[in-house]
Simulated scan of single mutants.
Amino acid sequence: MFVAQQLDRLLELGLEEMSGRSEDELLDLVGGELLCGPGLLVVHPSVVPAARLAPLLSRAGKPGFVVSDMTDLAAFSPIPEVEVPDSPLYVVTGVERGDELGDVSPDDALPRIVAAGRTPLTISEGICWLIQQPQMLEPGRCFMTIGSRKVKKGRLDKRTPAIWISGGSERDGGKAVDGAPKVGWCWSGNRHDWLGMASATGRCAPQPHSTVR
Rank of each mutant, 00 (worst) to 15 (best):
R9Q: 15
L10R: 06
L10E: 04
L11E: 12
E12V: 10
E12H: 10
L13P: 11
G14A: 11
L15W: 04
E16V: 00
E17V: 11
M18P: 01
M18T: 01
S19N: 04
S19L: 03
G20C: 10
G20L: 11
R21M: 15
R21K: 15
S22F: 08
S22D: 12
S22M: 07
D24T: 14
E25G: 02
E25M: 09
L26C: 12
L26D: 05
L27S: 10
L27V: 00
D28L: 13
D28N: 12
V30Y: 04
G31D: 06
G31T: 03
G32N: 13
C36E: 15
G37P: 06
G37I: 10
P38G: 12
L41E: 02
L41S: 01
V43Q: 02
H44G: 08
P45E: 07
P45V: 08
P45Y: 06
S46Q: 13
V48R: 05
V48P: 08
V48D: 05
V48Q: 04
A50G: 08
L53D: 01
A54C: 07
A54F: 01
L56D: 11
L57I: 00
R59G: 02
R59I: 03
R59A: 13
G61V: 04
K62L: 14
P63D: 02
F65R: 08
F65P: 03
V66S: 09
V66E: 02
V67R: 10
V67I: 11
D69E: 13
M70A: 13
M70H: 01
T71H: 11
D72Y: 09
L73P: 02
L73F: 10
A75K: 11
S77Q: 10
S77M: 08
P78Y: 09
I79K: 03
P80Y: 05
E81F: 00
E81V: 04
V82Y: 07
V82S: 02
V82C: 06
V84S: 03
V84E: 12
P85G: 15
P85H: 15
D86A: 14
D86H: 14
S87W: 00
P88A: 07
P88L: 03
L89Q: 06
V91F: 06
V91G: 09
V91N: 07
V92N: 02
V92R: 04
V92C: 06
T93Y: 08
T93P: 01
G94Q: 01
V95S: 06
R97C: 07
D99F: 07
D99C: 02
E100G: 05
L101P: 00
G102C: 03
G102E: 05
D103T: 09
D103F: 14
